[in-house]
Amino acid sequence: MILNVQGKQAYCYTGGKAFDASRPTVAFIHGAQNDHSVFALQTRYFAHHGFNVLAVDLPGHGRSAGPALASVPGMADWLLAVLDAAGVGQAMLVGHSMGSLIALEASHQAPDKVSKLALLGTTWPMKVADALLETSKNDEAVAIDMVNIWSHSSMAQKPSCPGPGFYTMGMARRLMQRMSAINPEQLFFTDFSACNAYANGQAAAEAVRCPVLFVFGAKDMMTPPRSTKSLTTAMPHGKIVQVDAGHSMMQEQPDAVLDALFSFASAAN
């Protein structure tokens, strides 16, 4: 689905079903150097089981017009504008990595528009190592390879992969390379800098009153579970689910992530 948001084209994947604003809506927000496709299995299931799906391509990513936005608050404001453009009064937000910060900030900017909050592969502060930040600025291809290795818990395909014969690490690498090709304006550096600079996490987390789900990868090297204490402490009512995966949990353990998300979305408040 193509929307006009802040004067530019914004693409939202609807899970293969026609969008109907009268149904409960779940918005999915991807992380750095990615697009909506990282939620492919989860979004299709939601769309075919009673939910509206809006899996966004952030500005400058995938099919949404650029340039990429340089701050988490700016991306949160854009996300809220997407909901308005789609005619959605309230939605559950599902964010992965950088997308989790966007979801958190959106809930702070407009708490009445957020019914539930699911934060995957999250942490705050989401600091990026100086070496990785510098590499993303000066040699994006190398940064892609670094992140792809660190985002996966192993080279081998997990047994739960719904597509036997597919190579999860190779697919993730090609997706990031494609994002680089369609938006050569230092996309990875822009995304990483936004994560690194986001300073409102504590205040935003402490203000959250809606139901919260945390999904952590037990083998996550990008946002390790031990780094999440500030967020989980600020939102003590949040439910924590741990899956046997690295940072790219939606690909490594798609069924476990789906089960956690769908159970959370379906539960009464």
Score class of each variant (00 low, 15 high):
148 N>Y: 00
170 G>T: 05
183 N>L: 10
145 D>H: 14
180 S>M: 14
136 S>D: 06
160 S>D: 08
135 T>Q: 06
139 D>F: 05
172 A>V: 15
143 A>T: 09
185 E>C: 12
182 I>P: 00
126 M>T: 01
181 A>Y: 10
131 A>F: 01
126 M>G: 02
125 P>D: 15
147 V>E: 11
191 D>Y: 04
142 V>C: 14
173 R>Y: 04
143 A>Q: 12
170 G>I: 04
179 M>L: 10
138 N>I: 02
114 V>Y: 07
114 V>R: 06
115 S>D: 13
118 A>N: 06
183 N>D: 05
115 S>W: 00
149 I>M: 15
137 K>Y: 08
131 A>W: 11
180 S>E: 14
143 A>V: 03
170 G>S: 12
184 P>L: 03
140 E>Y: 01
162 P>L: 08
179 M>D: 09
156 A>M: 08
190 T>M: 05
134 E>Y: 00
170 G>P: 00
168 T>H: 13
157 Q>H: 07
129 A>C: 07
159 P>S: 05
158 K>L: 11
122 T>K: 02
124 W>N: 03
141 A>M: 11
147 V>M: 15
130 D>Q: 11
151 S>V: 09
161 C>M: 04
189 F>G: 12
146 M>Y: 05
148 N>H: 07
170 G>R: 01
144 I>E: 09
186 Q>D: 03
138 N>L: 07
183 N>T: 14
133 L>Q: 05
137 K>V: 00
154 S>Y: 06
157 Q>M: 13
128 V>F: 02
175 L>K: 07
157 Q>L: 02
142 V>P: 08
173 R>E: 06
174 R>G: 06
159 P>A: 11
144 I>P: 13
148 N>E: 04
120 L>H: 03
148 N>S: 09
172 A>N: 04
120 L>A: 14
144 I>W: 04
147 V>R: 10
121 G>F: 11
138 N>P: 00
137 K>R: 05
173 R>M: 09
137 K>W: 03
132 L>Q: 13
176 M>R: 15
142 V>H: 14
158 K>S: 06
125 P>C: 07
153 S>Y: 02
175 L>T: 08
161 C>T: 09
175 L>R: 12
186 Q>A: 15
165 G>C: 13
184 P>R: 14
179 M>F: 10
190 T>Y: 01
156 A>Q: 15
122 T>A: 00
148 N>F: 13
154 S>T: 09
142 V>I: 13
123 T>Y: 01
159 P>G: 13
166 F>A: 07
152 H>W: 04
150 W>E: 08
188 F>P: 07
116 K>E: 09
115 S>E: 04
186 Q>W: 12
189 F>E: 15
125 P>R: 01
177 Q>S: 11
129 A>F: 10
113 K>Q: 07
160 S>N: 10
181 A>L: 14
170 G>V: 05
184 P>V: 12
158 K>H: 15
132 L>G: 15
137 K>L: 00
124 W>F: 12
126 M>Q: 00
178 R>I: 07
117 L>Y: 09
187 L>M: 06
144 I>K: 01
190 T>F: 05
140 E>H: 12
154 S>H: 14
174 R>K: 05
189 F>W: 15
164 P>S: 07
158 K>E: 08
165 G>T: 08
134 E>W: 06
124 W>H: 15
121 G>D: 11
173 R>F: 02
176 M>S: 15
178 R>T: 14
177 Q>T: 11
186 Q>T: 12
137 K>M: 02
140 E>A: 08
122 T>V: 06
164 P>V: 15
117 L>V: 09
178 R>K: 12
169 M>T: 00
145 D>R: 07
